[in-house]
Design a protein around this nucleic acid. Sequence first.
DNA 1: ATGTTC
Length: 483
Amino acid sequence: MKKVKKSDINKLKDYLWEIPMSFRDDMKVPARALAVESLLDDIIEDRSLSQLVNVATLPGIQKASLVMPDVHEGYGFPIGGVAATRYPDGVISPGGIGYDINCGVRLLTSTLKIDDVRDKIEALSKEMYAQIPSGMGKGGHIILSEEQMNHVLTTGAEWAIENGYGIHEDLTYIENKGKLMEADSSMVSEMAKKRGTDQLGTIGSGNHFVEVDYIDKIYDEDIAKAYGLENRQMVVLIHTGSRGLGHQVATDHIRIMMNAMAKYDIKLKDRELACVPFNSKEGQNYFKAMCAAANYAWCNREVISWEARKAWGTIFGEAEANLKLLYDVAHNIAKIETYTISGKQQKVIVHRKGATRAFGPGFEELPQAYKNAGQPVIIPGSMGTCSYVLAGTEKSKDITFGSCCHGAGRRLSRTAAKKEVNAPVLKEKLKERGIYIQSGSFKGIAEEAPIAYKDVNLVVETVHASGVAKKVAKLKPVAVIKG
DNA sequence: ATGTTC
């Protein structure tokens, strides 16, 4: 595979770079990277830009294959990538969505200020760790019957609320109200359902976590007010997805697609880009299964919120347990959306893999309170650094198919991170800075160390400067619960 | 990311 060098890349703006179609004769559109130059110099080191060029060859791809500033290499497609293919005959590719279907984040706001509760943070971190199951393969307290599983897969977050694990008001503040209508539970294999039987309300491992933060800085007073954010306010950030169930859905359908591709005469440089036309039988079946797994993930984050609320009730009392959902966004998902392409309205299948939707003001699905502000975009940083709340913009539709970055983005591989980091020492150092890490695994702490990640400040500066999202608030962590 | 490499 021809490696992408700096000299192959044209600078379009200070934060926008393009690999032109002349780079490789099989490219159907140019490949673009949103990044300030110092991040680009990091990005060029791994295979993510070569992967981006591969994506630009997919049947039906529109306008450009894109990566966000937090990009790094992934399975087939780079993580931090956006690819829109023509509806309905362009391809859908599970690799463009990711194994963790509807991995995403949500932010809950509290009525407490950090300065009033410093002395309770360590106890809070322990109580949250006790209430929220975490770790590889770990199950939770809810065991779903076959019938309940089918309900979760078709109704998403609603299931949690109807069964006493959530608050009805939350639904208004979840992307797609926590339920994709196209879901079909019969497209989810028995194996996938089995893996998901006891994993509702669990965070898993890797970069998944539940975190307590406080608002350290407000950049946009008006939008912060609309979102209900105030300086020093404590919030809860939840990052996880569809667990073993989503992983199995991806595994099952990638295998099916690899066998079906020849039938549709699709030939690829990298078999990890396995894809079929969206309107083919296999494409539809995957999409329906993906939607079902996405619903499972929304239900999962709703149940985890219930567990977090329980822990807050134990530590601070009933009145303070009423954490309010600011917003819940997916960053591993495919959506059918409409954009202006070459001057005309065109429906596309937008693949977002490690990319957050970032729609601007006026978007009809937004709750009334956010109509003028735009969709909240939640960007978790690396463990122990900081995170951001941003607001989507109208401009994101022109530049990134309504998308934004999803986090800091990995810089070192997990193996490299483990070599560099002494986890017990890191944990102690963070504690000295008032950040309590609760984790069952030192290996997990090492892999997620700040040094393993890009500088989230630069990532956020890039998206802010490019206009795809606006900075609203900066969050600082005080407690992290992880696998 | 993941009952850690279909």
